[in-house]
Design a binder for these strands. Sequence first.
DNA 1: AACTGAACCAACCGCACGCAG
DNA 2: TCTGCGTGCGGTTGGTTCAGT
Length: 226
Amino acid sequence: MRKPCCDRQDTNKGAWSKQEDQKLIDYIRTHGEGGWRTLPQAAGLLRCGKSCRLRWINYLRPDLKRGNFAEDEEDLIIKLHALLGNRWSLIAGRLPGRTDNEVKNYWNSHLKRKLINMGIDPNNHRLSHNLFRPQNPDASGSATSSASKSHACEAAKSRGGDNDQVSDAGSCLEDEPSGLPDLNLDLTMTIPSPSNATVENEAKLNEFIVSKELECAPSSMLPLSS
DNA sequence: AACTGAACCAACCGCACGCAG
DNA sequence: TCTGCGTGCGGTTGGTTCAGT
């Protein structure tokens, strides 16, 4: 096991100061992204490289879209989560200006609960039989109307276990309850084995996502930038 | 006004992958 | 082929803010 990179005594932890942010921004503007291991020293920061990278990606990048998620973004997250499971970076990749961390946090704090309130199991996007389904039109209706119909199985639980296999929806649609009829998410497909998981495969996966979006999404959601 | 629990979000941590030597 | 390094990812934690009592 490799030593953690952040165990040095002389590195700062916790919240970033404005000065630190500025140093990081200035450095990356001058030298570009990358070289995270050596960046802190070069930029005069008492941080580990990982911390710098995270700060840049999640907070300082100029193309980040801050603020609340739009309804179509919510829909898309839910739909992609049904397709891909907890692959936050892939999901975030289809949401311009959003980061995986942001999407993950939003899922855990908002969307998960929203689905539960709608009587949908957020883990597999199926109707949850034993959950109380509120009559509240707010919960059952507007924001995630298409989401509630996205009942493909969760793709994969997590890295390692799922092996980059995209959801086998066929297997999870077979016992589908009657409630969520109209999205065609038959995801039967062949994804190359994890051992071959390469950039090319990632690109194929993205193509797949796009094709599914074209099949399933309301036109208002499209096109999606990559 | 004070307290408490819930919600939110930035940041940390450990692991796995790709690549170069 | 093996090994170590750099990087990216997803899960988790901890601090802060908000809402209810």
